[in-house]
Design a binder for these strands. Structure first.
Lengths: 236, 236
DNA sequence: CTAGTTATGGTCATCTTGACCAGAACTAAT
DNA sequence: ATTAGTTCTGGTCAAGATGACCATAACTAG
């Protein structure tokens, strides 16, 4: 314990620094099976600590932007993409997250569309990885990604996030593939279709997807709205 | 936009300050009906801004404590209570939450037991209020409480938080009263009991609660563990 | 024209949920 | 002592949701 009078350990008492990071998910076909899989972009650390390791995109919170704006900016700067879904994940503030200084990270997670994700920037220091094969990341970022995955699975099970990983038009089988990729288990096509058809915010179109080697599936469209964050408003 | 060179608007670019606040819930019998109701403690602002208004307990994050420790300290300092349940709620970081400076608040929510809550400190500047009759609070604290209530209702519907508002031993009817108070609707006693009995982490004891004007109900005990936060580990 | 594939609609048994009934076990009042 | 009043507790029943599974439709590839 240091003195209770002031100014002595001023540097010690300086407020922890505040950063925003973002876990960005997108579906990409697996190189091996071709089935859609979860991928996310990471940036290479070019400074100590953890220089050379991969880390979540992020940076300090600037004075004039909201938390969500900062997360959005992360997204644009590292991938060039606009998020289709962006939600606060958690504030990580453990004492020893960074070896050099105390830093509190407010982490967001985002979903982007595959069409866009295919065009995403990639470079020497930005690369996409399969979510289930990340290797060792900087700081506590492995734990953060794990938690983001857990949250994604949860949201998927209840809510309406799956559609934000797909384009505007999609087949019910594509939705099922999203679920299978994220939950990592097979689902019965017929039962899954029955469930989706009973939800309100998914709408039949007159269009069919051509080009497969089989009966062309009908295309659907998502009509629901994602809930807002509580800083503006609610979220599950 | 200001210059991209450095130091000029240094004060402008100073990081937003970081605070921790805590929404503390406890059950207390309503003065009118006597049924248990949700209450929470607030502290009176003794400085500008919002001087004189009631606000959530909180304060700046000190350099040497974790987020959760800071929330715990809030709790102890304002109520003298140890939390039975403490979880991160959300990080609020809108640009204009405080009129005087940019401040990011990481908010926790807590549940405490009624026995303890009855003993809780109360003073000129600390008072308990019914959660549904708060009046106008300082900053965006009304919105924060609303969101905490929403989260509580949600967690209740799934999880195992109800027990943290009760003592170690409780009757099934008491659990039902918690649900009825939080969800604000009547539940069928027989059906509710059936559901509870099918959950694993609630254990029959041989004891009965005496003293009512009717058949004495059996006492139960909660045996589950609350999930840890992801900063240490997981949470729903 | 046939085999292969997925799409789509359907059945059936099982589980869960909500509405409701009835006896059990206590207290309070007559 | 008996009865009325209360909640506790176990049960039934119908409606709805879920999972396993089957059959036909509609396309492509050979």
């Amino acid at each position: 314990m240091y003195s209770s009078s002031a100014n002595v350990s001023e540097r010690q008492a300086a407020p922890p620094s505040l950063a925003i990071s973002t876990v960005i998910f997108a579906l990409r076909p697996s190189e091996s099976s071709g089935r859609p899989t979860l991928w996310l972009p990471l940036v290479r650390r070019i400074r100590e600590p953890y220089k050379g390791l991969w880390a979540l995109p992020g940076g300090p919170l600037s004075h004039s932007e909201s938390l969500q704006d900062a997360a959005s900016r992360n997204l644009v700067e590292t991938t060039g993409l606009a998020p289709r879904y962006l939600e606060q994940l958690y504030a990580f503030g453990g004492l020893h997250r960074s070896p050099t200084q105390r830093v509190v990270s407010i982490v967001y997670w985002a979903l982007v569309q595959p069409t866009e994700a295919a065009l995403a920037d990639e470079s020497e220091n930005v690369r996409w990885f399969r979510a289930d094969r990340l290797g060792e990341l900087a700081f506590d970022h492995n734990a953060i990604v794990d938690y983001a995955l857990w949250r994604l699975r949860n949201k998927l099970a209840y809510g309406s996030v799956a559609y934000h990983l797909l384009g505007e038009y999609f087949t019910l089988a594509q939705v099922r593939e999203v679920y299978e990729a994220v939950l990592d288990r097979q689902l019965d096509p017929a039962n899954f279709r029955r469930q989706l058809k009973s939800t309100p915010d998914i709408e039949e179109t007159g269009e069919y997807l051509q080009g497969g080697k089989h009966r062309p599936p009908r295309l659907y469209r998502f009509t629901g709205r994602p809930g807002l964050d509580p800083d503006n408003r609610s979220t599950p």
